[in-house]
């Protein structure tokens, strides 16, 4: 038998590495476009985290959180894109 909680824990640690890399890109920039792309990535990681939490805790309500986060992600991306088009690039 596979211990699902152990699997979820290991995968969460791997996801933390991805989180750190995306966060580094978000802090580092250098342009706004980079930061927004990194933000997109951060939300994808958050959705993955909540799905993994659903496995490790056995509460499927966390899957609803994943759905909500992915909904918000789209609106945020659209808003950022409009902002970037209006404002122009730079730092």
């Amino acid at each position: 038998m596979i211990d699902l909680q152990l699997v979820a824990a290991i995968l969460s640690v791997v996801l933390c590495v991805a989180l750190g890399l995306a966060g580094w890109r978000m802090v580092r920039g250098p342009s706004f476009a980079d930061r927004f792309v990194a933000f997109d990535m951060l939300t994808a990681v958050a959705v993955a985290f909540s799905a993994l939490t659903a496995v490790s805790t056995g509460r499927s309500a966390f899957l609803d959180i994943a759905l909500g986060l992915s909904l918000i992600n789209f609106v945020a991306t659209a808003a950022f894109a409009v902002f970037l088009e209006r404002k122009g690039g730079g730092r």
Binding site: F32, A33, D40, F80, A81, G88, G89
Partner: peptide, 10 residues
């Protein structure tokens, strides 16, 4: 995002 990045001169 791609269009906005292009327009903003990334």
């Amino acid at each position: 995002l791609g269009r906005a990045a292009y327009l903003s001169g990334a």
